[in-house]
């Protein structure tokens, strides 16, 4: 099972949101990183058959994306924004979605219980959807996507609005599920991808600017991330000269993490130490480089 995307293009009016995308997504957890508006959601909606590409081909498990009925049998989709009819209980909403997935009656009951068990929502099965917490709603989203045991799971920003504990629980669940299926996980939080994905792609302005191992992605910024402690007054100049990743206030001075192509020479002989890049550093480096190239 693999997702193959070839020369995929999509535009909304004159605005091109996906440009000639090429991707190969194997079994396991695959991360899709990018800033807001990079085209992640559009790509996921196309893969979930709720949006139509303008050009290019996509196959999932060798089946052309245009064979929608077969593709919809293979995929489970958790959209970025979703809800269900607020008066429905958790179990009845899953049952309804199970009917729409074509799961026969007796089996459906068992599948609903199984999905609820997987996401640890059995206790909440008789609760109305509107009474669930944000984390529970996200877990419900995973449950509905898993209901028909799909070979491919497409999850768009699953941790949006979740507290750290819920996030961790959700990623553990996804990691467990990824053993025998493709899970495409989209987020703009690089740390999330770093925690659970072995492979990832980075989207910027509708183009894929990296795809491969997350380890390799992290190393892209090796030797280009520095840290320096400087007076508050020097921060503005620092921002003008370098791509500042993070700033920590420390009394009158600030501790600053930034990107530089070669060892920086800061005014006032302020020393800058090279440091180990994180996935987020690498993503920012990649995106900044891409923007420079494109102009």
């Amino acid at each position: 099972m693999e997702i193959c995307v070839e020369h995929l293009t999509k535009a909304y009016g004159k605005r091109v949101v996906l440009k000639d995308i090429r991707l190969n997504i194997p079994v396991g957890l695959y991360g899709l990183l990018g800033e807001n508006g990079a085209g992640k959601t559009t790509l996921m909606r196309i893969l979930a058959t709720v949006s139509q590409p303008d050009a290019g081909t996509v196959t999932i498990g060798g089946i052309d994306l245009r064979k929608k009925k077969e593709i919809r049998r293979l995929i489970g989709y958790l959209p970025q924004e979703f809800s269900v009819y607020p008066n429905m209980t958790v179990a009845s909403a899953l049952d309804y979605l199970g009917i729409l997935s074509g799961i026969p009656g007796r089996e459906r009951k068992a599948r609903v219980l199984e999905a609820l068990y997987q996401v640890n929502l059995e206790q909440e099965r008789n609760k109305r959807f509107r009474n669930l917490s944000g984390g529970m709603k996200r877990r419900f989203g995973i449950a509905q996507a898993l209901l028909h045991r799909p070979k491919v799971l497409i999850v768009d920003e699953p941790t949006a609005g979740l507290d750290p504990e819920e996030r961790l629980r959700l990623y553990n669940l996804l990691a467990e599920l990824a053993r025998d299926r493709v899970i495409l996980l989209s987020t703009h939080i690089a740390a999330d991808i770093e925690a659970v994905c072995a492979k990832a792609a980075v989207l910027c302005q509708g183009s894929v600017i990296f795809q491969g191992d997350t380890g390799a992605l992290r190393q892209l910024a090796a030797g280009k991330v520095y840290r320096a402690t400087l007076p508050q007054s020097a921060l503005e100049q620092m921002k003008e000269n370098y791509r500042v990743i993070s700033v920590h206030q420390n009394g009158d001075s600030v501790s600053c993490r930034f990107l530089a192509e070669k060892t920086p020479k800061l005014s006032g002989e302020i020393p800058a130490d090279s440091c180990e890049p994180t996935l987020e550093d690498s993503c920012l480096y990649l995106i900044a480089s891409h923007r420079q190239e494109v102009g």
């Binding site: 058959t49 919809r72 989709y77 959209p79 809800s83 074509g102």
Partner: peptide, 10 residues
């Protein structure tokens, strides 16, 4: 916000 949940079904 349910149309995508319904739309992506079989």
């Amino acid at each position: 916000h349910m149309q995508e949940l319904v739309g992506s079904r079989q």
